[in-house]
Amino acid sequence: MTAGAIAAEPLGVACPMDLGWRYASGAAMERFLAGLRERRIEALRCDGCGRRYLPPRPLCGDCRLPLDRWVPVAAAGTLEAWSVYRLPILDGRTGEPRPTPYGIGLVRLDGADTTINHLLAETDPGRLRIGLRVRAVWREELRGALDDILHFEVAR
């Protein structure tokens, strides 16, 4: 096709990229993140379908209605899905490899109807199952970010 056969050696160009990012949270997320600093979790409830959304967002995707009714949510809930992750993956916040293994789960917090995706303290698959009660383990110094919750631990 092209003159490909003539080049004996396929060359390449290395372009390591260092990207900074900076995002505005918007009003609903700002209230939620500010609440985390005080260990307070809140969801937005849809007047149309009654669904209590975490993450809170300005619009119900199913009803297409604006959301503004805040409802309290507990820092404990039920494990709805889980896995133990063993593949080295880069942390989306830093680009650094995340230590493995680590637990991941979908947790339905008491008072919310959606589940949230988060990390689990437990890494033994034999001790994890759907339906377990779990609770949030908070960071010492709260910063107003989702990782103010370090992970969820199984409530004993």
Binding site: A81, S83, Y85, I89, I104, N117, A145, L146
Partner: peptide, 19 residues
């Protein structure tokens, strides 16, 4: 806000749903 601190890519998403 919701994914970068905890997301584990396509594989992590699948593993959760598969459970």
């Amino acid at each position: 806000f919701w994914d970068r601190a905890v997301a584990s890519g396509a594989l992590g998403n699948f593993a959760l749903s598969i459970s």
